[in-house]
Structure formats: structure tokens, C-alpha cells
Nucleic acid binder design. Sequence first.
DNA 1: AGTACCACCTGACGGC
DNA 2: TGCCGTCAGGTGGTAC
Length: 260
Amino acid sequence: MPELPDVENFRQYFDNVALHKAIESVDVENNYVLKNTSAKSLNQELEGKAFDETCRHGKNLFASLDKGGCLRFHFGMTGSVQAYAEPSDQPKYTRVRFNFRDGDHLAYADLRMLGEIELVQGPQDYARKHGLGPDAAGISLPDFQHAFEGKRGMIKSVLMDQAVIAGIGNVYADEILYQARFHPQQQVDELSQGDLKKLHSVMRKVLSTAVERHADPSKLPSSYLIPRRRKGQSCPRCKSKLGSIKVGGRTTWFCPSCQK
DNA sequence: AGTACCACCTGACGGC
DNA sequence: TGCCGTCAGGTGGTAC
């Protein structure tokens, strides 16, 4: 699930369960998820410290340590974090386990292991080095317009390009375009300033709504496309059958009638 | 610069 | 029941 709204919820959850607790050790069940980082360095860097602050940029969660250092979490397609106390409650597909001195644990679980945990300098440094665009949840209209300047190609691809704006993935790109009534294959260089303004405001609204509803598809407004991205489902607005096409190699659901 | 593929992984599902 | 292809909310690399 991990797009911006999911990761923001992970961040808030992380704040509630993992902040200001002394770290005893870190167990790496599968080092495939470690990026530029070894199990040994992870332990050396974290032992005796505590996470003291988090921030999110796009789909990345950053947790800084009280005596220096910062850990980056990316959740790939199937990653999540889960706190628990009893070893028997450890979630399936736990790849890395943070053990706190009070006996609690935080699991980083990721079935497909496409996520990453990495020791980094800090959020700004990481964003700069990896060319991440501004975060989609907080971007202003002028910055949004600036980000789209000179861009070409299909609107969905641009929206999902983390170097343009960070945080939108396949599912929320579809939702935003549906709510704003743009066809996913609309060329961005043909959009007017008014179109961009509309896209920006709808994007902000969809993301904030999804964050508030804990990125739970079953709790999203009934006017949303997300719970209906399946064969045979209808548009909540006009009731015509939803269509699916490939855009940038990704399955795209939309309403052929509402999105021109 | 934009697009189309491929790769990295595991599991669920539908068809035969 | 079992096998097989396809697909799944991400990203990075390749070649055109």
C-alpha cells in the first residue's frame, strides 16, 4: 500500500510506538532490505540511542537518532511497521526487528522485500542526492506549477515521477486524475494554468483526505475510485463501467466517460 | 526527454 | 489437486 498517505500513517504510528525508547539491538532477519548498510553497522549506529524525531518526504520515512544519525525507511510495495511486545505477536514477513530496552519490539515487515532500510545523513541530504521533488502533501501552487514547467508526456507519468513531486504512486495518481477529471494520458504540456491549479488543489485534497482516513480504502469517501479498481465496477459519479489501460507500464483505472 | 522493457522479490488467483 | 501464467499500491537500469 505504501504511497504518501500510507507512509504518513506509518510515520504517525512510529511516533506513537518508537520514539524516545532506548534501543537495545537490531535483528536483521533478511539483509536484502538493507541498502548501503550492514546488520553490524545498523547495530553499532543504533545501540544505546533512541529515535527522537521523524519526518516524511514522499514515500520515505526518516527517523533521526538522539545522539546523531538517521535511518531511512522505504516500504516498496508491501512494507509496513508494527509494534508488539510478545515474540509470538511478531508479524509475518518481519525482515528487521528493533528491540527496545523496555522489552517492546518494532518490526519492519515486507513480504516482497522491495523496500529499503538505510543509514543516511538526513532527509534533506537524501532528497538532494536522489533528486526527489518537493513533497506532494505540502507543495504550494507556485512550486507545483514550477515543477511542471517544461515537462512533457502523459499526466499520470509526470504525477508519479518522484523527481517532479514526491509521494504519488499508481493508485493515488488514478484517484487524483479521476477526481480532477483528467484523462491519464492527457499530455501535460497541453494543460492550462487553470488546469494545473485544479490538479494541484485536487491532489492536496485527495492526499489530506486519505491521510485523515488512515489510507484505508474502506474508509474513503463513496465518491472515490480507489475501492473500485476492479473489473466490472462502475463510476460512482456517472455509473458507466470503469476502464483499465496501461500507462507507463502500470495498470490504470479511470472513467472513460468522465475523464476526457 | 520520454517511453518501453527488464530486473529485483513473494504470494494470490484464475484457467486448464 | 497441481502446475503455470499473470498480476500486485515501487524503483532503478537499459536501450531506443
